[in-house]
Write a protein that binds this DNA or RNA. Structure first.
Lengths: 212, 212, 212, 212
DNA sequence: CTTTAAACGAGACGGTACGTCGTGTCTTGCC
DNA sequence: GGCAAGACACGACGTACCGTCTCGTTTAAAG
């Protein structure tokens, strides 16, 4: 997750020399989110972040290779706050996760950063991998969890074919995340209760029809 | 679409002085797409575009306010090439438009630019409107057209409630465009025949279920 | 004397584009001398000079390759103010030029800059040439002038051997300039009336003895 | 000569704790001269010196306050190698010392460092004193020695006025050192046999004339 | 022997300046 | 007036050193 000499991190990272400040890491990521809110992606500068964090620019570059990597880590922490409590039915679970995701996308730091790093990742394989591991794959867990619950409830059948199940999970993830992002950022229309209900209904019918 | 004195453009726009070169406009937009391919959004510069187009920087700024506006116009031309020939059934039409859109998103100039301008638009209302009018609303016609054909074929019922119809169109547009973009750029997985078929099936069931 | 496209300077320098600001040149050189006085050579920065001159850093670098070249030009203007009015005798002329040179070396901008650029020039041939042409060779004129006057007065014989005359001129120049600089900057002792008289006496005896 | 806790230096300086490494001192000064040769004054860095000496930066700063002080000590060791064997006459002694000094100034570490520290000393009184005690005053001994020998030989009269003798010594020192430095570094001309002979002749006539 | 305290290597740290690049504006002179 | 050329003020870039600090380790003399 960090630049150079990370990997093992912590205990045995390097035996000699002054150890890296853990406070600095936290301060930098928080400062990055602050700056994203105030300035947006394109006007965020490394110098500004370092100043907000009360840290030297070199300290920043020692840990992250650039703005892209820094922002991915900063917003990944936001995405990790998403949860999926059991709402009693698949439909309710879907509605809940859609609303929660939409709420996250109302936060200015998430709005401005998410599309920007994805845009950069189209020309930077390392960045794409970082986004995938730090954000995408971690959130897929919500879909997996919802599916398992629905299967336990008998709302969805168990899928014997492992690979098919995986493809379905990916598809559902892309449909939910993609549609919400498009609605919120591209169409720039509100993700309100009515829209969520309509979208969830469409998705439920789709799921049940496909599963049949 | 242009900066200052645009609208009518061309012949009678301003009475005195040398008229603006129409060749320059085309050259600039083409050069912008070239530069997007080679350099990507973040490394594309106004100076580089002007040099590629064989045009002075002032000429560029006389027409567009900045990089954002220029790139929106440049990629909008790409999106206008999308078409929807009648494939005989709603399902076939959907598959076709999904494939065509995915193909567009394989072009490097579209990949890198689309997400980037959307990211910028989260903090720039004028830019959001420009994107909406130059790209989003123009492509919504494909959904409307598909719907009308399906209704003519009897695959979908006519919707009396105008506003409901509009909301449904928007939803379908967000689902298709959002899902494909997410698959292609965020998940970074291929949009192949198998995936398209699965996605279309899900969508068809969703539509039929909701419409019932 | 300048960076790039100088040479012919002025009229036909470059036909097209905005011409370089002559005011900027003067402001930069003045700002450089100011900064040398206040900060000294080692704490003078290009950024500070550009700020004092009310000019962008790029404007500075467009004209000079670096601090060394800039400072040479800035102090060269100081050296050009040296004059040698006819004081009636060779001895008086020598005393006058020594005093005037010592006075120049009391100016903080000259003290700090002169030795520094010479130090740099030991590893930079281009800089050495620049110092030679902008400062050293221009001041040698004072020695030549003093010699001619002394010959006209009959204080010194005319030298038939051109090359010998040249070597003598160089030697006298090194003796006067070197000794005064060493006294003022290395020994850091005052160049007062008494010292000048003693030094001049030594020099006059040396000249007459050698010439005999 | 050193930073902190020097003065008394050596054995009883501080009673307890690990004593400073004498090897480190020598390695650092040697590394400094090496670096001066390779990089010159302005590109010499404390970090580089410490690396060459196989020593931590802290070890370096524990002994010297900065680059200036370090370099003064490093070149002072060079100057201490100058000697003045009895060549039989004042003239021969002068020629010898001039040649030896010129030879020292051909060494790149001396060329680049000498002028640089003098330049710095114009704004740093402590540095000027250090240069004076470590270099200037120590070399003045050569002039004093030459004078005493000449007096013993009867080439120069004994000077009763102590203060006048001292002023004369200083003047001769400034003339010799200043002229040679100016010839070698500012005029950047070779100090060859012919030039030395001419300069020495001038000086001898000057001395004899003044002494009369 | 231990203790004790400074020296030592390594390297992270907050700063400052570097020299370059991109932006958007301006000033020329030619069309 | 459009336009190419290019200078300009501004501000961010990523790097290099500065001199200080914080670690863990080593080393000699005092107890």
């Amino acid at each position: 997750m960090r630049h150079a000499r990370s990997g093992t991190s912590g205990s045995a990272s390097g035996r000699t020399g002054r150890p890296r400040s853990a406070e600095a890491d936290a301060a930098i990521l928080a400062a990055t989110r602050d700056a994203l809110c105030e300035l947006g992606w394109s006007k965020l500068t490394m110098g500004d972040v370092s100043a907000r964090a009360g840290v030297a620019k070199t300290t920043l570059y020692r840990r992250w290779a650039g703005k892209n990597e820094l922002v991915v880590d900063a917003v990944a922490e936001l995405f990790d706050t998403l949860e999926l409590p059991d709402r009693g039915s698949l439909e309710a679970d879907v509605e809940y996760v859609v609303l929660q995701f939409a709420e996250l996308l109302r936060r200015p730091e998430a709005r401005t950063a998410l599309m920007a790093v994805v845009a950069e990742s189209t020309r930077d394989d390392a960045l794409r991998d970082r986004i995938r591991s730090a954000i995408v794959d971690r959130q897929k867990r919500l879909v997996v969890l919802g599916r398992e619950r629905a299967q336990a409830r008998g709302e969805l059948p168990y899928e014997a074919d492992e690979e098919l199940a995986c493809r379905t999970t990916d598809l559902i993830f892309d449909v939910i995340a993609g549609t919400v992002v498009h609605r919120a950022l591209v169409s720039a229309e509100p993700v309100d209760q009515l829209w969520v209900a309509t979208f969830t209904a469409l998705l439920m019918h789709g799921l049940q029809g496909s599963a049949a």
